[in-house]
């Protein structure tokens, strides 16, 4: 399989105007992924499927990730003059990053026996811009998995032929896999809870007045 950089260059040539970015993965597996822009995503996907050298004919997995609003701290070493002596000091900068939802696709080629190629798509935010283009018209195997991501994360897939909830019932309003979801407080606590459950149990007892 070509390297991710080569694939990126070929994609940019094939789909003019497409904005692509390689997202590095620092873990030992080193599975770097390709971030696609939503406007050109379907055209890019079709190219990946139909190109004679790539032929990614199988989307094995489609999943979602919720990225809530966070602050990113980065440390930069800067030279500063303190008390007349030049020293190397860590300068900490904090940048707020607004949250978004992500769709992650794992592609393989049955014909060429290579893969995986990991694609990512990102929504504008987590509230009102939660649309992503659907890849179901390109790979049929995405259909149920995109429905699952719609159900559990609340990503709306434009162009999906049958976007309904798949695990929870239709009347359900929440998206349980979002980080800020809180499940119904409907279970009995063991007598000796600990960690997160201890916190929950305290909240539960305070609400019921049995603390």
């Amino acid at each position: 399989m070509e390297s991710l950089e080569q694939i990126k260059i070929r994609l940019e040539a094939a789909v003019p105007g497409a904005k692509l970015e390689i997202l590095p993965n620092e873990s030992p597996s080193g599975q770097h992924s390709l971030l696609l822009d939503n406007a050109h995503a379907v055209a890019l996907a079709r190219f990946l499927r139909d190109d004679a050298q790539l032929r990614f004919d199988y989307c094995s997995n489609m999943t979602g990730v919720d990225w809530p609003d966070t602050e990113i701290t980065s440390k930069v070493k800067v030279k500063k003059v303190i008390d007349g002596v030049e020293k190397e000091v860590d300068e900490v900068t904090k940048t707020a990053r607004p949250g978004f939802l992500e769709g992650v696709y794992h592609l393989y080629s049955m014909a060429m026996k290579h893969g995986p190629l990991i694609l990512r798509l990102r929504t504008g935010n987590r509230k009102d811009q939660v649309q992503l283009p659907s890849f179901t018209p390109v790979w049929r195997s995405c259909e149920f998995q995109e429905r699952e991501v719609y159900d559990l994360f609340g990503v709306v897939f434009d162009g999906h032929p049958d976007l309904r909830r798949i695990l929870m019932w239709d009347e359900f309003r929440d998206h349980p896999m979002r980080k800020d979801y809180s499940e119904p407080d409907d279970y009995e606590y063991e007598p000796t809870p600990h960690d997160d459950v201890l916190e929950k149990s305290k909240r539960h007892q305070a609400a019921k007045g049995t603390l």
């Binding site: 019932w169 239709d170 009347e171 359900f172 309003r173 929440d174 119904p184 409907d186 009995e188």
Partner: peptide, 17 residues
Amino acid sequence: FGEHDIVPAMNPLLWKP
């Protein structure tokens, strides 16, 4: 099927923990 849970979530005549 409710918006957040099934309604009612339990039957108080039966379930007396």
